[in-house]
Design a protein around this nucleic acid. Sequence first.
DNA 1: CCAAAAGTGTTGAGCTTACACCCATGT
DNA 2: ACATGGGTGTAAGCTCAACACTTTTGG
Lengths: 231, 231
Amino acid sequence: MNSYSHSTRLLVAIDCIIFGFDGEELKLLLIKRRFEPEKGKWSLMGGFVNEKEDLEVGAERILHELTGLHDIYVEQLQTFGKVNRDPVERTLSVVFFALINIHDHNAESVEVHNACWISLKQMPALIFDHEKMVQMALERLRYKAALHPIGFELLPEQFTIPQLQKLYEAIYDLKLDRRNFSRKILSTGLLLDTGEKNANSATKKAVMYRLDKERYESKFNHFWYFMPVTT
Amino acid sequence: MNSYSHSTRLLVAIDCIIFGFDGEELKLLLIKRRFEPEKGKWSLMGGFVNEKEDLEVGAERILHELTGLHDIYVEQLQTFGKVNRDPVERTLSVVFFALINIHDHNAESVEVHNACWISLKQMPALIFDHEKMVQMALERLRYKAALHPIGFELLPEQFTIPQLQKLYEAIYDLKLDRRNFSRKILSTGLLLDTGEKNANSATKKAVMYRLDKERYESKFNHFWYFMPVTT
DNA sequence: CCAAAAGTGTTGAGCTTACACCCATGT
DNA sequence: ACATGGGTGTAAGCTCAACACTTTTGG
């Protein structure tokens, strides 16, 4: 039974936008492309879909290859399919974006792949339509982080509220009121006080929190309002 | 230059979820599949991507083929790519969802395709993973319609506020307060009073409004809060 | 004149914002 | 002691939800 035989088959790639946060700025993990076309240019990490591999599995494979990490936050963004987006041959790209703790990656594999963490604000030109992909991913991140508690994915296991605030300020490129932010976050009931205090701080040490995983899972799809409403 | 030659090519389909609203219920335009496998079963409208055709163009082609319509609201949902989702051969499906005025379709082409408007609440079993697609599309519609003014896409050019309210009640499967709803909608400044009144109503005739296209375009991506906040 | 649906007004509760003040720490 | 950053409290203003009342129309 081969009823589809006359239809065209297409090359299908997976590209991954990897967000990280260094405490000050939102960053992307980008690579220098190692093959033609556009060899040497900046690009998203990607690869082709294997014949017997689900898309999500492919994305995880690619992410693991570059970062050494498993079980990270990954979400399918959208599929890019303009006919001429790749000059060699028509290639669909199923784009995923991932949020990781920037200190958690495997330095070796990052080096092997010629990869670098680059601040979003200083992003170089990227190959093909990768800039559009990043643009869309940033929009999605902003959209989603305003309503759902995904910011935590970019921070270490334990973090302080001021750290979280800096993250939100980086995502939305604005300043927030310290007192109101703290109240808003704590009122979600998603944070657990670990009892420990931040050692880094030069002044008063902030309380370290961690996610209440159970509440996080069960309440993830409720709407929160982390950002000030600016109509 | 053929650097990708050793990679696998895949069949790529486009499937479309078509929402409509009859004044009471949210409906889907579904078809009875005309070929094997699963011939005779209910299915989403779909087709294969042509070799020289952008994905969005393909979606529009497929939507036009079934409804006779152009320039309708279409949004890419997500790509489904489980290895075994199609028993004949591995096939990716790029899924789009569309919102149309249910009275605007071409009855002939609908008939030719064996298609039917079916209430979401009485949805039959669908082939492959099409039910998951519908589920996800409904979630996306609910999500988006709570924050952006897309409901209008499901109504005629001119409509009354009570009609719009019924639509929202159908989307979210709940009852809303007439007075608060009306105020909330009017306060967006997106509606223009046409001066005309609804003829259908058996009692007091409601004012007919139409979208202020300019404000709609420019304010589309602002956040609204059409739905009551229920944390 | 009555029923049913549409339109307008009002009020109180609760949330958000904007601010002031106090505490802890290293130099 | 003081500068810096973290934590808590509070009052004013605004928004939203919950309600009552009036208007229009057909029968």
